[in-house]
């Protein structure tokens, strides 16, 4: 799980062009949206593509995204339980 979280942090920084942020700057339980990393709705769509492309997870219900994308911790948990890649 620790390796998955680190991998996720690196991917998010790269895919979302988070300049001047390193994996060490992102806490596992830090909010990804709102006051945390400050991601926006387009970033959420990018995360959905990331889940599909990298882990073979298709999110058909957008409401689920709200829970899944709360933090690196919640993303990693969902991915480890549902990944097909």
């Amino acid at each position: 799980m620790t390796a998955l979280k680190e991998e996720l942090k690196r991917q998010i920084i790269e895919v979302l062009n988070l300049e001047d942020i390193t994996p060490a700057d992102i806490q596992d339980d830090e909010a990804l949206f709102g006051e945390g990393l400050g991601l926006d709705s387009i970033d959420a769509l990018e995360l959905i593509v990331l889940m599909d492309k990298t882990y073979g997870i298709k999110l058909s219900d957008p409401k689920k995204g709200r829970d899944i994308f709360q933090s690196i911790e919640t993303m990693a948990t969902y991915i480890s339980e549902n990944r097909t890649k």
Partner: peptide, 8 residues
């Protein structure tokens, strides 16, 4: 895999 960040 269309990129939303590019499409906008």
């Amino acid at each position: 895999y269309p990129r939303p960040a590019t499409f906008v």
